[in-house]
């Protein structure tokens, strides 16, 4: 096999001028496929250092001057232009409902294969892009190959562990043409960033503690355990419908899809809709008073017990083991 030379574009997400965790994961995955270029939408990064460390040879900054220029069709058109200009044959994005829209538009515009929610991406002996995906609430694993020369792939967070490259990239910053509104008919009336929590983001965290109806609305044991583990707090649909937690942290097939290294479900029954969004997690731990709760059928470790007792004790013990008590 000849070494691939076509660049790989990794569309990196960022917040407050700094790359999100998913950005470094994308670069790590991308550099295994070819020379990786970061694509940074919006105002330029404060510091391209972390992108360089994770192997970015180039950072394409694509200004987004208006809210309409940030809509999926507009971003996709800008990315199609960059793919054309650089000759990139793979574009990587972090999975999420918004990103899937960008990916679909981009694949439509460029004739590329579309592979969403991948848990791994590689090239086969002929250089074709091959992805691994989980289906049916992660009860099946699929491997698929692109049948055309270009592929747009969305990668789940935590699918790869972000690791610095052996040789850092140059991260040469190039400002590209700004994204422009692709559809003059669509108007953004309002765009509000929702406040971020002090805890890690549920979609990105490598540890997530989910509380269900069994909390009866008292999330303090769930938050305590999440903090002891340095993790994020998640919730089931019943919890967000009750207004006990914001909708943003709902885990499941219509909420956030997560695959953290460690998932802890407390007072969560394990309904199929919830499973669809978390069953690809590395290790699954459940605490539930009902020994017949479905979650025990797919947990690696389960405790039949009251979360109000078990979680605080676990949190205290974890702090002690970590020498933080």
């Amino acid at each position: 096999m000849t070494a691939p030379t076509a660049p790989v574009l990794a569309v990196v997400e960022h917040h407050d001028g700094r790359p999100r965790a998913s950005a470094l994961e994308l670069l790590t995955a991308g550099r295994a496929l070819g020379p990786v270029h970061a694509v940074w939408l919006g105002d330029p990064p404060d510091d391209a250092g972390p992108l360089a460390a994770h192997g970015a040879a180039v950072v394409h900054v694509v200004p987004v001057p208006t809210p309409e220029a940030g809509l999926p069709a507009s971003v996709a058109a800008a990315l199609a232009g960059l793919a054309e200009a650089t000759g990139a044959d793979v574009v990587l994005l972090a999975s999420g409902f918004g990103a899937k829209e960008v990916a679909a538009r981009l694949a439509h515009a460029t004739g590329a294969a579309l592979m969403v929610d991948a848990s791994a991406v590689e090239r086969d002996g002929e250089g074709r892009v091959v992805t691994t995906q989980q289906a049916f609430a992660a009860s099946w694993t699929l491997r698929s190959a692109a049948q055309v020369g270009r592929a747009v792939v969305t990668l789940r967070s935590n699918a790869v562990r972000a690791t610095p490259a052996e040789t850092p990239g140059a991260a040469e910053v190039r400002v590209a043409a700004p994204a422009r509104p692709a559809d003059p008919r669509v108007r953004v009336v309002e765009r509000t960033a929702r406040p971020a929590s002090d805890r890690p983001d549920v979609g990105e965290a490598d540890v997530v503690v989910v509380g269900g109806r069994g909390t009866q609305g008292d999330f303090s044991p769930v938050e305590d355990l999440a903090d002891a583990l340095g993790g994020a707090v998640g919730a089931t649909r019943d919890v967000t419908d009750e207004g006990w937690q914001p909708h943003d942290v709902m885990v499941g097939q219509t909420g956030v899809t997560i695959s953290p290294r460690l998932y802890v479900g407390a007072g969560v029954s394990g309904a199929v809709h919830h499973r669809g969004g978390m069953q690809a997690s590395g290790t699954i731990v459940a605490v539930n008073t009902d020994p017949d709760a479905p979650i025990f059928e797919f947990a690696d470790f389960g405790v039949v017990g009251d979360l109000a007792e078990v979680l605080p004790q676990a949190a205290a013990e974890i702090r002690r083991l970590r020498g933080q008590a």
Partner: peptide
């Protein structure tokens, strides 16, 4: 534009379930 090379059921997880008798949190 894509072809499935392989589809395989994931082996069931071999989990352990314990009952809390006062030390469930520590065992977790």
């Amino acid at each position: 534009r894509t072809r499935v090379l392989e589809a395989s059921p994931r082996p069931p997880r071999e989990g352990v379930v314990i009952t809390d008798t006062g030390d469930g949190g520590r065992r977790l």
